[in-house]
C-alpha cells in the first residue's frame, strides 16, 4: 500500500498565511480583512507587504462580513480572517444575506476550527460550522488536511468566482501532501487503495485515517482512504466508485456528527447505492479545555477510533451480505 510520510509538522493556518501572501503578490484584487486576530490567522506577512490592501476591522465580525461583501462591488476578492466560531455562527445572517444570497465573491477563511483549538475550550471550539456553511445555497465548503493543501486551496479559491468557506486549524499536524500539488475544488484525493472499507476523511482526520489504514493493513484489512477536502460540492463519483468496490464506509471529521461530512456522504449513498456507514465525529456535544491530543482521544477522533469504526462497519456489511 502507498505510504505517506510526515515531512515535518506545520499548522494549517500557516498554509493559509503563505497562500494569502503568494496571492497578494500575484493578484492585485486580493484584499485581506481581519477582526483583531492577524497573528493567529497568520495574516501578518500579507498585512505587512500589502498594507493598502489589508483592513483591520477590530472586534466587529458582522461589520467585517458586510465590508467584505461591499468590496466585491468594485472587483475586489476579499479574504476575511477570524476564528471559525466567529466566522460562521456569530455572523450567520450577515453571511446568508450579504454574501450567499447576494452571490458575492467573498472567501471566508476560518482558523482554530474544532476541538484542536485546545485549551480555550468550548466557547471557541466550533463543531457546527461545516453544517452551517454547507446549508447555505451555493456556498463552497473546504477543509484541507495539512499545510501544503491549505496553501494550495487558499490560492485556488481566488480563481473561483463565488462564496467559499475555507476551514483550517491551530495545531501543528503532519505535512504529507505534495508541495505545490494543485488544489481542485470539488475533487477528492484517493490516497490509498483497498477493497474492504472506504475511509472518507476531511481536515485533521485525514492523517489519522492514513495511520488507521496502516494498522488495518497489518490486520489484513485493505482500506481505501479518500481525502475529502471539499465538503461541498462533494465528489460523489469518487465516493460511489470506491464504495462499489468496498461496500462500506467510515467517515471521519472534527465536527459534530450532525451536519458534517458524514451526513453529506450518507445522502450520496442512500440516493445511489446504499452501504453501511460509521461516523467518526463528535457525538452531539460541545468540547472542553484540554490539549488537542487529549481532546481528540477523549472525543474519539483519532486513528484508533477509525479502526474501531472500521471493524464495526465491516461486521455490519458482512451481516447484510449473509
Amino acid at each position: 500500500m502507498k505510504k505517506y510520510s510526515d515531512t515535518g509538522t506545520k499548522d494549517t493556518r500557516s498554509g493559509f498565511g503563505a497562500g494569502l501572501l503568494e496571492l497578494g503578490n500575484s493578484n492585485k484584487n486580493v484584499v485581506g480583512l481581519c477582526a483583531d486576530l492577524t497573528g493567529s490567522l497568520k495574516m501578518n506577512a500579507f498585512a505587512n507587504q500589502h498594507p493598502d490592501r489589508f483592513f483591520q476591522v477590530g472586534i466587529a465580525e458582522a461589520n467585517m462580513i458586510g465590508i467584505a461583501a461591499g468590496l466585491t462591488i468594485g472587483g475586489k476578492i476579499p479574504f476575511t480572517g477570524t476564528f471559525a466560531n466567529f466566522s460562521t455562527g456569530r455572523v450567520y445572517d450577515q453571511i446568508r444575506q450579504s454574501i450567499a444570497y447576494s452571490g458575492k465573491n467573498v472567501k471566508i477563511c476560518a482558523s482554530h476550527a474544532g476541538l484542536t483549538l485546545g485549551e480555550d475550550g468550548a466557547t471557541h471550539q466550533i463543531l457546527e460550522d461545516l453544517g452551517l456553511m454547507k446549508m447555505l445555497p451555493n456556498m463552497v465548503v473546504i477543509n484541507p488536511c495539512d499545510y501544503n493543501q491549505t496553501k494550495a486551496a487558499t490560492i485556488a479559491i481566488a480563481d473561483y468566482d463565488g462564496p467559499v468557506y475555507l476551514r483550517f486549524g491551530r495545531p501543528k499536524v503532519p505535512n504529507f501532501t505534495a508541495t505545490n500539488a494543485p488544489f481542485i475544488i470539488g475533487k477528492g484525493d484517493l490516497l490509498t487503495e483497498g477493497s474492504d472499507v472506504t475511509i472518507i476523511a476531511t481536515g485533521h482526520l485525514v492523517w489519522e485515517a492514513l495511520k488507521a489504514s496502516e494498522k488495518l493493513n497489518s490486520m489484513g484489512i485493505g482500506a481505501e482512504v479518500i481525502n475529502m477536502a471539499t465538503v461541498k460540492p462533494l465528489d460523489e463519483k469518487m465516493i460511489l466508485n470506491s464504495t462499489k468496490k468496498t461496500g462500506c464506509v467510515v467517515t471521519a471529521e472534527e465536527h459534530n456528527r450532525f451536519g458534517g461530512l458524514g451526513e453529506s456522504v450518507a445522502q450520496v449513498l442512500v440516493t445511489n447505492t446504499p452501504a453501511p456507514q460509521e461516523f467518526v465525529a463528535v457525538n452531539d456535544s460541545f468540547g472542553e479545555s484540554g490539549t488537542p491530543t487529549e481532546l481528540m482521544v477523549k472525543y474519539g477522533l483519532n486513528a484508533d477510533a477509525i479502526v474501531l469504526a472500521t471493524h464495526k462497519v465491516i461486521k455490519r456489511k458482512n451481516l447484510f451480505r449473509a
Partner: peptide, 23 residues
C-alpha cells in the same frame, strides 16, 4: 446587494466605498 434583514447595508456601503478608493 440583498437587504431586508436589517443592519447590514452600512457595512456593505463602507466596503464599496473602500473598493472605490482602491480603484
Amino acid at each position: 446587494i440583498a437587504s431586508g434583514s436589517l443592519g447590514q447595508g452600512l457595512s456593505v456601503a463602507i466596503g464599496a466605498a473602500t473598493a472605490k478608493k482602491l480603484n
